[in-house]
Design a protein around this nucleic acid. Structure first.
Length: 579
RNA sequence: GCCCUCGUAGCUCAGCUGGAUAGAGCGUCCGCCUCCUAAGCGGAAGGCCACGCGUUCGAAUCGCGUCGAGGGUGCCA
């Protein structure tokens, strides 16, 4: 059961317009064969109707008449019985403006109250198996602001897909293999030996991880194993130290993310791809398909050729492609180790070929953008469809306090980690603020996020919810509860009509958030819904009115509350009863 | 050099597949509680939509170019 009353209204106008055109052709008033699509919009100014179509402006030329003439002819042939509309008027250069009738308002209200928690759901992605892979932070150290933003964004995006009917899998890819793990092990090793033999006796690797967290791991390792690893096989020492570090870091990441309300269906280990032979297998397929070659002792992927094929498919000319200066990529280094790219190909092949996802969305930091096209191309090269993989790139987060950029934590003097942030900012505010449009650089105002007042949009929305709860309970004490039947015609003030229209918009916002991979539609919508409610609350009293007026206004308040609840639920922000 | 993202009010940002006088919040100024939560509401001021050319009935929106900001440019992940 779904409801999208905006879409329903638009569909009706398109239908009304098309049949009016057909009738006009029949009568010989307009030429046949004009296929201009009927675009339906909601005018910014309600004075121009509740809905409008620009069909006459767009089709006039092909019909060899002025837009207003076309409008005249069509308007005269529209029948509004059993539609949501009361009539049509011609305006401006040739707009057809339609006015909603009671039927539409009544259906919106009853849909919200009937569907309850399901109101807002859509079927655009019905039956689709989606994966959202996000955060996937390097397990060699603490997570940073970018991971926090990615975590919230990915989690909310996943919820948005679910609301549109998809079956969604949330996944964290753990880079527990390869070069950086070796570096991780060597860093712990150096700190461990330094603890025992003195700082100066052991040189710290030049490209090692400098953070205190590595020192802590080394100390903990020593506490557990004493000096046993001083004279030990180096390979074993590295392996055991890496294992030790990961076994501490990964649970920490899980618990840090859990503080943000983020839970994954799976933590997928990169190492498992090596253990299962999936990397070898993917490389074999690429080789078999003729996309690899060996040079300088390394195994290379013919990225330039693959990308050329892909870009040609997108309609790019050879000249444009030449300018890109495409280069091939190393899959297996001369030292015998596979690159990250190689395991990533195996990983994404696993997502599609082994696990059968229809669509995979990866949330990445914008600094990875150079990798996007290559990975899509590599999917083509292993015989899959790179277009099933979409990457959401997020720009960086800039923390601001007192109008100045903050790079370091006050407390630790280090770059601010995801858990540091939560020590300072409530989780609701974090989830709200990080859920911004991914492709814009984000300024996170620490002063604003902690403010518990009207300047903070989280509280503005939560306040609307709390206000409604208290209103409803006050009415309940007077014996007024939600009725099955109310007369929407009594809710005919401007504020009431606007509120119902706002309620009707929710499913459409949920749909667009999924379409554009941008869950911040929900944030903006909720602020606007809350504002519409506050205006209604101010203009329309409830207590003390006639019983049937109380009934319909109470229903409006209930419905608004329901929608705010559903919206906040998608965002993972709480909806307090009292504030 | 080349590629990606961005440039809209003092600040943070909306503006959907081109549509009617360019929107919101914050900040500034002026009002509104004997009455359901004033964490609210109403009003005022504030814009060459970076700039130029083009496409069209119509451009903040699409195309090309210039300038500016951030990111990337791969045997790192």
């Amino acid at each position: 059961m779904y409801s999208n009353m905006i879409q329903s209204a638009k569909d009706q106008i398109a239908e009304l317009t098309r049949s009016a055109y057909a009738a006009a052709v029949e009568a010989g008033a307009l030429p046949a064969g004009v296929e201009t699509p009927v675009a339906v919009e909601i005018p910014k100014d309600a004075a121009n109707g509740d809905y409008t179509t620009t069909f006459c402006l767009a089709a006039a030329k092909a019909m060899k008449k002025s837009p207003r003439e076309v409008a005249q002819i069509l308007a005269g042939r529209m029948r509004f019985e059993d539609t949501y509309f009361t009539g049509v008027e011609i305006a401006g250069p040739g707009f057809l403006n339609f006015r909603l009738g009671e039927k539409w308002y009544a259906e919106v209200l009853s849909d919200v109250l009937t569907l309850c928690a399901a109101y807002g759901r859509g079927n655009a992605l019905e039956g689709k198996k989606y994966m959202v892979e996000f955060v996937s932070a390097n397990p060699t150290g603490p997570m940073h602001m970018g991971n926090a933003r990615g975590g919230v964004l990915g989690d909310t995006l996943a919820s948005v897909f679910e609301m549109n009917g998809a079956k969604v899998w949330r996944e964290f890819y753990v880079n527990d293999a390869g070069n950086q793990i070796e570096k991780f092990a060597k860093s712990i090793e150096a700190r461990y030996l330094q603890l025992i033999q003195g700082e100066d006796a052991v040189e710290f690797p030049e490209d090692g991880y400098q953070g205190d967290d590595i020192r802590d791991l080394a100390a903990a390792f020593r506490e557990q194993y004493g000096d046993n690893y001083v004279n030990c096989d180096v390979a074993k020492r590295h392996a055991d130290m890496a294992r030790f570090g990961l076994d501490r870091n990964i649970p920490k990441m899980k618990s840090d993310l859990a503080r943000y309300g983020i839970e994954f269906d799976q933590w997928f280990l990169e190492s498992s791809l090596y253990e299962s032979g999936a990397v070898e297998e993917a490389m074999a397929i690429l080789t078999e398909r003729g996309y690899t070659y060996e040079k300088d002792g390394a195994l290379w992927l013919k990225t330039a050729q693959i990308m050329r094929e892909r870009l040609r498919g997108e309609g790019k000319s050879d000249e444009q492609i030449d300018k890109l200066d495409l280069k091939d990529d190393v899959l297996r280094r001369a030292n015998g180790f596979y690159t990250y790219f190689a395991s990533d190909i195996a990983y994404h092949r696993n997502k599609f070929a082994t696990r059968g996802f229809d669509k995979v969305i990866n949330v990445w930091g914008a600094d990875h953008h150079g990798h996007v096209a290559r990975l899509k191309g590599a999917m083509d090269a292993v015989g899959l469809d790179g277009d099933k993989l979409d990457i959401v790139l997020m720009q960086l987060v800039k923390l601001v306090r007192d109008g100045e950029t903050v790079r370091m934590s006050k407390r630790t003097g280090k770059s601010i980690s995801l858990s540091d942030l939560l020590d300072e900012i409530p989780v609701d505010a974090c989830r709200w603020f990080f859920n911004t449009k991914p492709d814009t650089q984000m300024e996170f105002d620490l002063d604003l996020a902690v403010r518990e007042d009207s300047e903070n949009p989280v509280y503005y929305v939560q306040y609307a919810h709390a206000r409604i709860r208290s209103l409803i309970s006050a009415l309940g004490e007077d014996g007024y509860t939600l009725k099955d039947e109310v007369d929407v015609a009594l809710a005919n003030s401007e504020q009431e009509r606007e509120l119902i229209k706002a309620l009707a918009a929710f499913p459409e916002e949920v749909r667009m958030a999924a379409r554009d991979y941008d869950p911040s539609y929900i944030n903006r919508y909720l602020v606007s819904l809350a504002a519409t409610f506050h205006r209604f609350y101010n203009a329309c009293r409830i207590k003390g009115e006639a019983d049937d007026v109380i009934a319909v206004r109470l229903a409006l308040a209930e419905a608004t509350d329901r929608v705010i609840d559903n919206g906040l639920d998608i965002l993972g922000v709480s909806a307090p009863e009292k504030m």
